[in-house]
Design a protein around this nucleic acid. Structure first.
Lengths: 236, 236
DNA sequence: CAGTGGTCTAGACCACCGA
DNA sequence: CGGTGGTCTAGACCACTGG
């Protein structure tokens, strides 16, 4: 009794997690088979299967058809790094988000940009540069190229009302994205617009989003190191 | 035919994803009920249920018991940022991982460290500082404090064989972790050990891991900005 | 070969929501 | 109240692994 109000598959998951978490079962050790767990808990195989399948999806166990289920080698510490609309993020902190548009225009794509967007060099692309501020303090310099095929009305947006990210999420449903995070020093222009020294290190996120058949956008997001950090947590 | 070799639940998922991805179904729109999908695909409810449950787990749809399934409001862009053992990571790239131990000793905890580890000030803690190298090039400066209650044998480890992360994963099963990533300039010592200039920006990850009742370890990991980046990708 | 997991079915009971 | 999703069962067939 006690926790008997939990669904059966959750009870199985909890039981297994406890054995792994307490160190009784070490990485590489076998986990009881579905048949064994059926008997032990007196439940059907589908229910046991769901428990094990979800544990596998969480990365706690490894399953190999024909071989068995084992405790995963490294309990990889992983957490969801969620990339969100910065407007939403700032407002959620109870702060005021404002935007200063530095540039918003049509451009002929240079070679590098064209390749990244999957266009031919010289094709027309949208280019925006803007500063996001939290309570008046600049926290992000956003330099973005947008594929007109993916979001034809992009430049009609009032970026003070609707952030580029939000517009794109609404008009070019996301199917794929990739990013990288690096550290670097700001350019003279970036430092000026962010109101920081050129020697202040920044986090730079390069992000590329795909919507259906098109690369929708490539963005370079620069955050002053002293005013922003990516954070996350994880629980077994 | 064609894709008929895919499991039925995957076909249902693909069909729904296509409607969402193409924009035919917009955020907030209802997704056909389990009963409707059963009929349409001629499959059992459990199979339909699995498809919808997985889509919900991926954040593409929202399900409310008694109400129905709808397309999720914002297709949140999120991906798993996986924190891995650096040794494993380097070896996977086909490179050679070596370690230089700068410091490995017992210490009286200062106030800040003690608080972070959940100990009283002056308690004994383990303190290690080491450099991780990939093909001989320094890529990470690791400054770590370990709670002796969580991993009593920590200092007996041969860190040239077993990285601190690996030792901790093995001896102090992870139950919780949190991290943050920032940009900053290295200290004089850090710059010297990493063989970089003091003006070269670095990525700094602060990580705190919990094992059962104890805070197991707090680590400050410093990566030269030009030699390392965090990257990831995700697919709807 | 026996044992494993991967998938699927055709039912079932329940809690919940909205009209 | 009818429709929804949440959970569960007792079978089944298959593909794969290992000895």
């Amino acid at each position: 009794m006690g926790k008997s109000d939990l669904p059966a598959y959750e009870q199985v998951k909890a039981w297994i997690k406890q054995h792994i978490g307490s160190g009784q079962w070490k990485p590489g050790d076998p986990v009881p088979s579905e048949a064994a767990l059926m008997q032990q808990f007196g439940i059907s195989r589908m229910t046991v299967n769901r428990a094990l399948r979800e544990l596998a999806a969480e990365g706690l166990v490894t399953r190999i058809q024909g071989s068995g289920t084992r405790v995963a080698q490294l309990h990889r510490i992983s957490s969801r790094l969620t990339i969100r609309d910065i407007h939403e993020e700032v407002v959620e902190r109870g702060h005021v988000h404002t935007t200063r548009v530095i540039r918003a225009e049509r451009e002929k794509a240079g070679a590098e940009v064209a390749i990244s967007l999957g266009l031919r060099a010289g094709a027309t692309v949208f280019h925006t540069v803007l500063i996001h501020m939290e309570n008046g303090v600049p926290i992000q310099y956003e330099d973005r190229y947008v594929n007109p095929s993916a979001a034809p009305e992009y430049l009609d947006t009032d970026f003070n009302q609707t952030s580029p990210t939000l517009h794109l999420l609404r008009h070019a449903p996301l199917t794929e994205a990739s990013y990288s995070i690096e550290a670097c020093l700001p350019s003279a222009l970036e430092a000026k617009e962010l109101a920081i020294k050129r020697t202040e290190p920044c986090l730079v996120m390069m992000r590329r989003t795909v919507s259906g058949a098109h690369v929708a956008s490539i963005a370079r997001l620069i955050y002053p190191g002293t005013r922003y950090s990516f954070a996350g947590q994880f629980q077994a």
